[in-house]
Simulated assay, not measured.
Amino acid sequence: MQIEEIMLELREQGVIAPHINTWKALSGGTVSTVYALISDGEPTLVVKINDPKTVRFESSYLRAHEGNPLFARVVYIDADYRYFVYTYQPGETEYPRDRKAETLQSLVSEVINRSIPMVDSSDFGYADEPSASWKEFLMLRYQWAQVTIDTRLSSADHKLAQQLIYSTQDQALQYLLHGDCGVHNFLFQQGQLTGVIDPIPTIGEPLYDLIYAYCSSPDQLDTETIQQAVVRMEPKFTIGRDLPREVLIGLYYRIATCILHHPQDIEQYMDAWEYWKKRR
């Protein structure tokens, strides 16, 4: 759909005022198209266009977190799930690297500890393509990462990652997770975390979102940085979890992502991999 067509629909539905007739394109995900709607020279609403399944799950995730100031508020969802509209969140996308520990602690307190239990669900993993178990979801991610990493890690390292996944708990928690909870999806004002955007709704262990955030930047990948956040988590999210194992699994996935999108960071992630192997 064209944004002009969408804005006409939104006016007809009474979602936006007649004077809102200006928009600007924003950077979106790999398949989404995103526009900010401008009122009095300032962005006020966001229109996000994607495939219907993605629109349905992403808008549902945001609605489940309505009232949390770190998330946008859904204003309108197209009946056919072609797009949805939510409030614009101000903030800078530049991540303050000197505040990683504080960012992770805020994430735990304001997002992860408020994760919503999926009481009636039997699914795990990505909400739009669910797996039968948490371990199966982790193994699907492993298979993708193994091919991507290839010889950048040794066969022993690949086997280690696989064994770590096999050793995860069979009875996993089922909570609604952000799923793409990295610094690239955080907004900041004066160094403080003020927004979390672009979820890929996922069902599983809340610790996954924290590990994802921790591994999403190559700096401060030490035990102290993450421990300061882990101790703030609800005990039910961490009891029986082996932190070095969980971090190594997260780093394995991140090394693959790094090879594809951030090759300049690969050496720091390789150093972190060796660092965490020594802490098993």
Rank of each mutant, 00 (worst) to 15 (best):
A36I: 00
L173V: 03
E12R: 14
V47A: 11
F57V: 06
F186L: 08
D219R: 08
P235S: 00
V74L: 05
K48P: 07
S217G: 14
M270H: 15
Q268V: 09
E9D: 11
G28M: 08
E246I: 01
G28L: 04
L10T: 02
W144N: 12
D120G: 10
L177I: 09
L260N: 11
T44A: 13
S216M: 02
I165A: 07
V31S: 13
A229W: 05
T151K: 15
I255V: 14
Q268P: 09
P130L: 15
W276P: 10
D51C: 08
G41D: 15
S167K: 14
S106F: 09
R82V: 08
N113E: 12
T225S: 04
F124C: 07
Y275R: 13
V34P: 09
N21I: 01
S109A: 15
I38H: 01
F237Q: 05
E58H: 08
F124D: 03
Q143Y: 14
T194I: 13
D157Q: 10
D128M: 15
H262M: 10
I255C: 05
R232M: 12
V74S: 03
I6M: 08
W273N: 10
E246T: 07
R245Y: 08
L70D: 05
I197Q: 03
K278E: 13
A272W: 02
A145Y: 07
E4G: 09
T44W: 05
L176W: 00
E205F: 07
P52E: 12
S106W: 02
K159G: 14
V247W: 08
Q171D: 14
F237W: 04
P52F: 03
E129L: 12
E102H: 00
W273P: 10
V74H: 04
D150H: 08
Q264V: 05
K278P: 11
A172P: 03
A17C: 11
G204P: 00
R63C: 01
C258D: 04
T225Q: 06
D242W: 05
G28P: 02
Y212N: 02
Q105K: 15
P117H: 01
M233L: 04
C181P: 06
M139V: 12
S167I: 12
W273Q: 09
R232E: 13
P43D: 07
H262S: 11
L251C: 03
L187K: 06
I16K: 00
A161D: 07
M118C: 11
E58M: 00
